[in-house]
Design a protein around this nucleic acid. Structure first.
Lengths: 183, 183
DNA sequence: ACCTTAGCGGAGGTATGGTTCCGTTTGTCA
DNA sequence: TGACAAACGGAACCATACCTCCGCTAAGGT
């Protein structure tokens, strides 16, 4: 791969994150190209279609979340609380990244979701271990499952995506974490 | 207003609820017209544009929720629990109504939201009274606000809107209601 | 320095879907 | 029943946005 090609690919991903972060899923490919300082043709050389570009962004985000979970697994102290802290950090990282927000909150693009299947599976596996440990130690509600995380994070994402609720997502997250703790 | 005009308006709204319920916000005006058994022109005679039609659906839904809250205010027993029951009923009513789901979950159409401003204000007012009462009686968490309801119901709506989570919204709702109860 | 070819740019094709327009139909009232 | 206007239908219009195509540029090896 030629040096300029690699550089452009980087630029495109970065620009996409910025543009989708501002306009959501209905940002335009032309805008991404402009923001990256390249032509649309170049964008399509690197990503066959819009979903593939979005998929790349979302996948990167899930990889980051996976790393957070790994850290949580190694931290000492209660694993359940560590998991909840990871979720909070994950939300923080997601704040300016509407591509991921839309992937999580209602009406997802199936193609995008498929691209991330592998990464998501890894994330789920790690979550499951932490949940099990947290339940055993009594810090998480006994009936908690990985599906709960998916739904609740989706909910927080939907709050983030709504401009009229700006900032409110931290409160939403807090309520959600409370719901997951054992009584 | 001529008799057939009134009848057609009814049909259009009903068809719209069905069509948007199946395909979400990106259902097409032509489909609504077909489902109502009228031409597109007729749809546009009754509603100046797509947002107006969606707004009508969403507004009707908020009116229904307002009624639920009125019932809750009159029921005997704890007002906080009555509020939570209303939310559950409201969610139930919203299940097959993706138009409303999308209005609540991230990336709303501003025009739609504006059309409902009046109705929503009424809903908020009633919620506020019930919350106050529920906090006083110790059944709701002391820091609960109307904004919490908006965010959490939005979250549930986003779970409903995601076909891959079908049915999961009841669990999401349950967690959410737990989060709102006093500890 | 030169040649090969991967990579680039961006005008334009195409599909989708909201909205308009106007000739035709049909309810309603005298 | 006849006339008038209100209402209808749906083909056509137009804006939007994804994606393709192809002539050009310049990277990198020899």
């Amino acid at each position: 791969m030629r040096a300029d090609a690699r550089r452009n690919r980087e630029r495109i991903v970065e620009a996409a994150r910025k543009v989708f972060g501002e306009a959501g899923n209905d940002a335009q490919m032309d805008d991404v190209a402009a923001a990256a300082g390249v032509g649309v043709g170049t964008v399509y050389r690197h990503f066959p279609n819009k979903d593939a570009l979005i998929g790349e962004l979302v996948n990167q985000k899930f990889i980051a979340i996976g790393k957070l979970l790994d850290e949580a697994a190694q931290a000492d102290g209660d694993k359940g609380e560590a998991l909840l802290r990871s979720l909070a950090k994950g939300a923080e990282q997601m704040e300016a990244d509407m591509a991921t927000q839309h992937a999580l909150s209602g009406m997802p693009r199936p193609a995008v979701w498929e691209m991330c299947a592998m990464t998501v599976a890894g994330v789920n596996e790690r979550s499951a271990k932490l949940i099990e440990s947290g339940i055993a130690s009594g810090s998480l509600r006994p009936d908690m499952t990985v599906a709960d995380i998916r739904m609740l994070m989706g909910g927080v994402a939907s709050t983030m995506a709504d401009p009229s609720l700006s900032g409110g997502w931290r409160r939403h997250l807090e309520l959600m974490l409370d719901a997951l703790r054992a009584r």
